[in-house]
């Protein structure tokens, strides 16, 4: 993709969002919408600047991001080895698959009540919820990735003298990588939603919390600001971090799977 194309791509992505802001800027004053119902563009910008000035916005955002990062990294570290083990052991996979199916339905916010009982309100409970959101999807996708590696590749490696370790590092892991990345991408999407919900209930800092308390004071401009930050952060993570990661490796290998 050339620089021109990329710019065009970015434009087609940003244009509809810009249009939405434009409609908002026109509609709110035109119908004299009360600020308790929906804020004006200027009020939200004001809230954003205020939040930046006193540092609270950054604190909330950074806390949320850190929770997601830690929960995700922990989940991936456990999920990928487990998925690979399941991929090479039929018995383990047969035993764990029903459990995996069951828990992946529950993944995310259904865990919040019990998480607060186990970990109390705060960091532990929220990281646990994120871990759950990411873990099951990544295990499942890793398993899928390993089982779709063509048998001849494993045979080829064995015939070239690969032992267990080399099979893992040079065949199973890279072979499953496209699916692992897909799993992380999907899992992070779940995690991000789960995070906001968990933060509304189980903590006193973070973007979800920021939204939730603003409601008590009818601060619609803070609520909308929070919503925008949540959406924008996710889009940036996905487009600037995860998508390029896929492009840099997997597409060049010709492994992109639909």
């Amino acid at each position: 993709m050339g620089a021109g194309n990329r710019l065009a791509g970015a434009l087609t992505f940003v244009m509809p969002l810009a249009a939405l802001v434009l409609i908002w800027a026109v509609v709110v004053p035109a119908f004299q919408v009360r600020p308790q119902i929906f804020p004006s563009v200027a009020a939200v910008i004001g809230a954003g600047l205020a939040g930046l000035r006193d540092g609270s916005l950054l604190t909330h955002a950074a806390t949320s991001l850190a929770r997601v990062a830690i929960g995700t990294v922990l989940a991936v570290l456990v999920a990928v080895p487990l998925g690979i083990l399941m991929g090479i052991s039929r018995g383990l996979s047969a035993f764990l698959t029903p459990l995996l199916r069951f828990f992946s339905v529950l993944a995310g916010i259904a865990w919040i009540p019990i998480a607060t009982l186990w970990f109390g309100y705060g960091f532990g409970a929220i990281v646990f919820v994120i871990f759950n959101a990411v873990f099951f999807v990544v295990v499942y996708n890793t398993l899928l990735g390993v089982s779709t590696i063509p048998m001849p590749l494993r045979h080829a490696a064995a015939s070239l003298g690969a032992g267990r370790r080399a099979m893992l590092s040079d065949v199973l892991l890279p072979g499953a990588l496209p699916n692992i990345v897909t799993g992380i991408r999907t899992g992070l999407g779940f995690a991000w939603r789960g995070l906001i919900a968990a933060e509304m209930i189980a903590t006193n800092v973070g973007l979800g919390y920021m939204l939730f308390v603003a409601r008590d004071f009818y601060q619609t401009e803070v609520i909308v600001l929070g919503m925008i930050v949540i959406g924008a952060l996710w889009l940036s993570i996905d487009r600037l971090l995860l998508a390029p990661l896929e492009r840099a490796t997997i597409e060049r290998w010709g492994l992109v799977r639909a």
Partner: peptide, 17 residues
């Protein structure tokens, strides 16, 4: 399988990565 017997596959079986 062992390295004393090299195999060439119909499907090539090159490591894509």
């Amino acid at each position: 399988p062992g390295a004393d017997r090299g195999v060439v596959f119909q499907s090539f079986a090159l490591f894509p990565w």
